[in-house]
């Protein structure tokens, strides 16, 4: 991967951001940072504001307060496509693939920022555009092989099973050659086998491609297994952060997940 920002500094710094929708405060003073190569997880109950944090990083939503810096540079106020060009890719909680396009075309669209030929060259096709298309097509085939979705590559994605769509979406994000990858509930609604496959892909992405990741996930087993550090949010507020074992032992976190009445013992018994 390219330049990892200020030497030794974090890749992403989120500083005290607050995001409101009218009367609802979706994010309320959240701060965290992600180091290069790190697999950082954000957990919290439904409606805690996890997806809103992702949308703030992609600048789909604009937090009213705070700052978000990527490789040392503030990204606040940039357009989502400009953020993408900086090297931040993501997947969506409710799959947001390009439904009528094939698997190949979806993943090729992920190559958009890595390709440069104009509409004019494209309409002419022969020459530079064709060359670029073929080179990127080869790259897309590598991703298809990596995610083991060869059999589906010519199908419009809307026709594919849910688990395969999740993989295609991961592939589309990987095609961007990102330095930071945001995964919003990558195993939601998956069975055990599919979850294990996805966990393997995530670990491979980190070890083989060295991409930093932020993972939002409700599957506690998965998060505790693979995350380096964890941030817990509840009602938009950060209530705990640290290594998996620290977070599991944090009484505020247990209270948030199980209600105020439960003790720390009950929390660990409940599967943390």
């Amino acid at each position: 991967m390219s330049n990892q920002g200020t030497i030794g500094g974090p890749l992403l710094e989120v500083e005290d951001i607050t995001l409101r929708f009218g009367g609802v405060t979706a994010i309320d003073g959240v701060s965290f940072h992600v180091n290069p190569g790190e697999l950082f997880a954000i957990i919290g109950p439904n409606g805690a504001g996890k997806t809103s944090v992702f949308n703030s990083i992609s600048q789909v939503y604009r937090p009213q307060e705070g700052d978000i810096r990527y490789k040392g540079e503030s990204i606040m106020g940039k357009r989502p496509d400009a953020v993408a060009r900086l090297g931040i890719a993501r997947t969506f909680q409710n799959i947001a693939l390009f439904g009528q396009m094939t698997v190949i075309d979806n993943i090729l669209t992920g190559r958009h920022i890595q390709m440069h030929e104009s509409w004019f060259a494209g309409m002419k096709w022969f020459g530079a555009a064709k060359k670029e298309e073929m080179a990127n097509r080869a790259r897309v085939e590598d991703i298809i092989d990596f995610l083991e979705i060869q059999a589906w590559r010519k199908y419009p994605v809307a026709l594919l099973p849910y688990g395969i769509q999740k993989r295609v979406e991961l592939g589309r994000a990987l095609a961007m050659d990102p330095d930071l990858l945001l995964l919003d509930e990558p195993v939601a609604g998956m069975n055990l086998e599919e979850t294990e496959d996805m966990a393997r892909f995530i670990l491979d992405i980190r070890s083989e491609l060295g991409i930093s990741m932020i993972l939002v996930e409700h599957d506690m087993g998965l998060v505790m297994d693979i995350a380096d550090r964890i941030l817990v949010v509840d009602f938009g507020k950060p209530i705990g952060t640290g290594y998996p074992d620290e977070v599991q032992a944090n009484p505020d976190v247990i209270a948030a997940y199980l209600g105020e009445d439960f003790s720390a013992d009950a929390g660990s018994a409940a599967g943390f």
Binding site: S58, V60, R79, P80, D81, V83, A84, R85, A89, R90, F92, A96, L97, F98, G99, Q100, M101, D105, L108, T109, G110, R111, H112, I113, M115, E117, S118, W119, A121, G122, M123, K124, W125, A129, E132, E133, R172, M176
Partner: peptide, 30 residues
């Protein structure tokens, strides 16, 4: 010309906007 547009980078960006405009932007399509 139209067919070439559809099978190249620009055509895919246009289709991406049709299918999911927010996702297209997050993929880097202005």
């Amino acid at each position: 010309l139209a067919k070439n547009l559809m099978r190249s980078r620009t055509g895919r960006a246009l289709q991406a906007i049709r299918d999911r405009d927010v996702a297209a932007e997050v993929m880097g399509v202005p």
